[in-house]
Design a protein around this nucleic acid. Structure first.
Length: 684
DNA sequence: TAAGTGCCTG
DNA sequence: CAGGCACTTA
């Protein structure tokens, strides 16, 4: 590292690679969301008159509720600027996010905090409605896509084909019926593929698939009946109001075309099926109400369709998934005995616990769209199998808290008081501390929040009984790796953590959640801390990086003795450090080039102090909570590394493809011993 | 051949 | 941060 080596024949490689913040984009879905009822028997005057009547009535009720709640916010003659609506939307957005505990500025600014791909939990109809008004097309599409996402692969997806239903093209009245029937024929393609979720999650979910299919077929039948009924009603309505202005006629046509009648009613059947059947006069009244409602705002039907569609489809999926996961949970429950503390902490007597839902799936009266369910299943549930891990898995993830309380209306589970954490305390491990340590990890990593942002549930609308808004905490829970083959009597491994470390059920900042089914699903998947790597281990590894950039297997074995270091786990740890190094060297190169650009012309001027930006970047990465005093030695190593990069770049060595390897060789010799404190389980 | 490493990518 | 791949090394 001789400054004299610097020559001035340098050409800068401008193609250095820097880490980029990546924003995950949700998989895009085609925007052809026409909902076309599929009905096996579409003849009018179909059976089930009382059923249809009931459903019709519930529809009217729902519509009326929707209209009322909408006009309550905005009288019909109130002009609404889009900006005002946008503000409202933002307020809504904000309110849903302010339920979370404040994050540190660092975490808020950290990468990965991409805007949620889906709208956050919408607490009610009116908010949803406002969104609709802002950009009805977009909102509708998003919602339906959301539903489809949750339904991906389900037989119901056959409904979501064809042209975008938001286009608003009119259909001549005379063609309406035949068109609908034709559409039905077109859609009536037997496509009963298995649900990927069911098949992928559990091989023994054939029954669940059947159940789902039956539900869907039932829905189809209902849709057919209701469609026929609706056509009838519609025709009556059309005849009566033939002389009315074109606009209203258009509305009805539009609605009749765009809103498959069945979707409007299905959901409320269960809610209102005790109502008396409608008589003729009542039916007329309903028709009028329906017409009034639709006249009041041409957008209503879109909203209506989207909401009902969303709700209905979600419910079907939800109950099916619920039953599927129930089976799964039964397979893996080791200790259902839970001690639930008031703060939402759950402890178990066993180290492996999956909290099982005690609720029947049918109690999920309101549902979310389970937009992220497939991925959740893949990354979480599928790994619960007590098998030998055969390949690399995502070993550190979070999942929502186990919602151990029975759901009840307006139940609010407050996050337990957050213990004030002593800076970098290893010597007094307690389960509580450990839990909060992980919590801190998560708190300081906004990407974790993002992880479940997409899992937020959506409330049902349409004047349904107020969905229980449960202010439930989301817990950092560690996905247990599939390495569960620890021999029964392995005294050395896990010993420090086995007794005191129960299921990690600390709570995260509040995230509003009102989807009972997801809660129950979540309940069944809790994780132990000491089988596989956890966020504590990750944090510990990051701090260890301050001492060693190239830890040997022995070092890993020594300092991660609380996990069974199988080949896979070891590889995982090695990979972690590899990633750490990658970031480290990228920063070094970046700042070395920056130094050159800024006119630093002597390697002696290349220094790293605790004030330097480079150190801040590194500290932010490896010591995000900033609760660890970075050793001076690391600063020295960092400075040497930076100087090495500076020299190499200055000497134009970076034109050599393997120019960094020389530096790596130097740096790997600068490792120092990791303090013995790290040998203890990381329980700060 | 397995382990370790780095690079690229998502 | 993880997966995949290519490469090196013991």
């Amino acid at each position: 590292m001789e400054p004299s080596l610097l020559d001035h024949n340098m050409h800068h490689s401008s193609s250095s690679t820097y880490p980029e913040d990546r924003t995950e984009n949700p998989p895009s879905f085609p925007h052809n969301n026409t909902y076309i009822s599929s009905s096996p028997q579409s003849s009018s005057q179909s059976s089930g008159g009382s059923l249809i009547s009931t459903l019709l009535q519930t529809t009217i009720e729902s519509k009326r509720t929707l209209q009322e709640s909408t006009t309550a916010y905005y009288p019909p003659d109130t002009p609404m600027s889009s900006s005002a609506l946008t503000n409202l939307n933002q307020v809504d957005h904000h309110s849903s996010s302010t339920t979370m505990a404040p994050l540190s500025p660092a975490s808020q600014a950290s990468p990965g905090a991409s805007p949620t791909r889906f709208r956050p939990n919408e607490a009610g109809l009116t908010q949803d409605w406002m969104l609709e008004l802002v950009d009805r097309h977009q909102a509708k599409r998003a919602r339906v896509e959301n539903i489809i996402r949750g339904m991906a692969g389900s037989p119901l997806s056959v409904y979501f084909t064809g042209e975008g239903f938001g286009e608003g093209e009119t259909t001549p009245t005379s063609h309406l019926q035949s068109e609908m029937l034709e559409n039905k024929r077109k859609q009536r393609v037997p496509r009963h593929q298995d649900l990927p979720g069911t098949g992928g999650v559990s091989g023994k979910s054939t029954d669940d698939g059947h159940t789902l299919r039956k539900q869907l077929q039932t829905m189809q039948r209902l849709l057919g009946q209701l469609q026929a009924r609706f056509i009838q009603v519609y025709e009556n309505q059309t005849n009566e109001s033939e002389e009315e202005d074109h606009h209203s006629t258009w509305n009805k046509e539009y609605v009749a075309t765009k809103i498959s009648p069945g979707d409007v009613f299905l959901d409320h059947y269960s809610e209102f099926n005790n109502k008396t059947p409608l008589d003729k006069g009542h039916l007329e009244w309903m028709n009028n109400k329906q017409t009034d409602y639709l006249h009041s705002n041409p957008d209503n039907e879109d909203k209506l369709l989207a909401d009902i569609l969303k709700y209905e489809l979600s419910r079907a999926v939800n109950s099916s998934v619920d039953s599927i996961f129930k089976n799964i949970s039964h397979a893996f429950v080791k200790s259902p005995q839970l001690h639930v503390e008031d703060g939402g902490m759950v402890e178990t007597d066993d180290e492996t616990v999956f909290l099982s839902s005690r609720e029947p799936a049918s109690t999920s009266t309101h549902v979310d769209s389970m937009s992220r369910l497939p991925s959740y299943s893949e990354s979480g549930m599928a790994q619960q199998l007590p098998e030998i891990q055969t390949e690399a898995l995502s070993l550190v993830v979070q999942k929502p808290a186990s919602m151990t309380r029975p759901r009840s209306l307006n139940l609010t589970v407050k996050r337990p008081l957050h213990f004030h954490q002593p800076p970098f305390l290893y010597n007094h491990p307690t389960a509580v501390q450990e839990s909060h340590q992980v919590l801190d990890n998560l708190k300081h990593d906004s990407s974790h929040h993002d992880t479940f942002g997409g899992l937020q549930c959506r409330p049902s609308t349409m004047g349904l009984p107020t969905p229980e808004i449960v202010d439930l905490p989301w817990d950092p829970v560690i996905v247990r790796s599939r390495v569960t083959s620890r021999p029964p009597g392995n005294p050395q491994v896990n010993q420090p953590m086995t007794t005191g470390h129960h299921v990690l059920l600390d709570s995260l900042p509040h995230i509003k959640m009102d989807c009972g089914s997801f809660q129950s699903m979540v309940k069944r998947t809790s994780y132990v801390l000491n089988e596989g790597l956890t966020t504590q281990h990750l944090k510990k590894a990051k701090l260890m990086f301050f001492y060693t950039r190239y830890p040997s297997s022995n070092v890993l074995k020594t300092f991660f003795s609380d996990v069974q270091l199988t080949r896979c786990i070891t590889s995982q740890l090695i990979k972690w450090f590899s990633n750490f190094r990658e970031f480290y060297y990228i920063q070094m190169e970046k700042f070395a080039r920056q130094a050159r650009v800024e006119g630093v012309n002597s390697v002696r001027d290349v220094a790293v102090s605790r004030d330097s930006e480079l150190f801040r970047a590194l500290n932010m990465h490896y010591n995000k909570a900033n609760d660890f005093q970075v050793p001076d030695r690391f600063l020295e190593v960092a400075e040497i590394t930076l100087q090495e990069f500076y020299i190499a770049i200055s000497l134009a060595r970076d034109s050599d493809p393997s120019w960094k390897k020389v530096i790596y060789k130097v740096i790997c010799k600068l490792d120092s011993d990791v303090p013995a404190e790290f040998k203890a389980p990381f329980t700060t």
